[in-house]
Amino acid sequence: HRQALGERLYPRVQAMQPAFASKITGMLLELSPAQLLLLLASEDSLRARVDEAMELII
């Protein structure tokens, strides 16, 4: 289940942060499945989480 969510998330994360897409997707997969579904449904929520992840990385 998580694998399938990751496969759906990755291209969207890659479009926002290509250099760190794998790392960010891995970080996002730590969230609950319900939270992941919310990110897939909301571009704004996904962008906010990706921005948060980038702050942790750099």
Rank of each mutant, 00 (worst) to 15 (best):
H1E: 12
H1P: 03
H1C: 11
R2P: 14
R2W: 12
R2V: 15
R2S: 14
R2H: 12
R2D: 14
R2N: 15
R2T: 14
Q3E: 13
Q3K: 09
Q3V: 14
Q3M: 06
A4L: 13
A4I: 15
A4P: 15
A4Q: 13
A4H: 14
L5A: 04
L5K: 02
L5M: 14
L5H: 04
L5W: 11
L5S: 04
G6K: 14
G6F: 15
G6R: 11
G6I: 15
G6S: 13
G6Q: 11
E7Y: 07
E7R: 13
E7T: 10
E7A: 07
R8S: 10
R8H: 06
R8F: 14
R8E: 14
R8P: 01
L9H: 01
L9E: 01
L9K: 01
L9T: 02
Y10C: 06
Y10A: 14
Y10I: 02
P11C: 10
P11K: 15
P11D: 10
R12L: 15
R12K: 14
R12P: 04
R12W: 09
R12F: 13
V13G: 04
V13R: 00
V13F: 04
Q14F: 14
Q14L: 13
Q14A: 14
Q14R: 13
Q14M: 09
Q14S: 09
Q14E: 14
Q14P: 02
A15R: 12
A15D: 11
A15S: 05
A15M: 13
A15N: 11
A15H: 12
A15K: 13
M16V: 07
M16F: 10
M16L: 10
Q17W: 11
Q17A: 15
Q17K: 12
Q17T: 11
P18W: 04
P18I: 06
P18V: 03
P18Q: 04
A19S: 12
A19W: 12
A19R: 13
A19T: 13
A19H: 07
A19L: 06
A19I: 14
A19K: 12
A19E: 15
F20A: 05
F20R: 02
F20E: 04
F20V: 03
F20L: 10
F20D: 05
F20G: 02
A21D: 00
A21K: 01
A21V: 04
A21L: 03
A21P: 03
A21M: 01
A21F: 03
A21G: 08
S22K: 13
S22Y: 15
S22F: 11
S22C: 10
S22V: 12
K23C: 08
K23D: 10
K23P: 03
K23N: 05
K23A: 14
I24Q: 00
I24K: 00
I24S: 00
T25R: 11
T25F: 10
T25W: 05
T25V: 15
T25A: 04
G26D: 15
G26V: 10
G26M: 10
G26Y: 08
G26H: 12
G26R: 06
M27Y: 07
M27T: 02
M27K: 06
M27A: 11
M27I: 07
M27F: 07
M27C: 04
M27H: 03
L28Q: 00
L29K: 05
L29V: 07
L29P: 00
L29F: 03
L29S: 04
L29Y: 02
E30T: 08
E30M: 05
L31F: 12
S32H: 09
S32T: 14
P33H: 14
P33F: 13
P33S: 15
P33Q: 13
A34G: 11
A34S: 14
A34E: 15
A34Q: 08
A34Y: 14
A34F: 13
A34M: 10
Q35G: 05
Q35Y: 15
Q35I: 14
Q35N: 13
Q35W: 06
L36T: 05
L36E: 01
L36A: 03
L36P: 00
L36Y: 02
L37V: 11
L37S: 05
L37H: 06
L37Q: 07
L37G: 09
L38Q: 14
L38N: 07
L38G: 13
L38P: 06
L38D: 09
L39D: 02
L39M: 13
L39N: 01
L40G: 02
L40Q: 03
L40R: 00
L40H: 01
L40D: 04
L40V: 04
A41G: 13
A41M: 14
A41Q: 10
A41T: 10
A41Y: 14
A41L: 14
S42E: 09
S42T: 04
S42F: 12
S42K: 09
E43D: 09
E43C: 05
E43K: 10
D44T: 07
D44A: 14
D44Y: 08
S45K: 14
S45G: 06
S45C: 07
S45L: 10
S45N: 10
S45T: 14
L46T: 01
L46M: 04
R47C: 05
R47P: 01
A48R: 13
A48Y: 13
A48Q: 07
A48V: 12
A48L: 11
R49Y: 13
R49E: 06
R49Q: 13
R49H: 10
R49M: 10
R49V: 09
R49I: 07
R49W: 10
V50P: 01
V50Y: 01
D51Y: 11
D51L: 12
D51I: 07
D51Q: 11
D51F: 09
E52M: 13
E52F: 08
A53E: 02
A53H: 06
A53F: 05
A53W: 06
A53G: 02
M54N: 03
M54W: 03
M54R: 08
E55D: 12
E55H: 14
E55L: 15
E55P: 00
E55M: 13
E55C: 06
L56C: 08
L56Q: 14
L56G: 04
L56Y: 11
L56A: 11
L56H: 07
L56W: 04
I57L: 07
I57F: 06
I57P: 01
I57W: 02
I57T: 02
I57Q: 02
I58L: 12
I58S: 12
I58C: 05
I58D: 12
I58A: 14
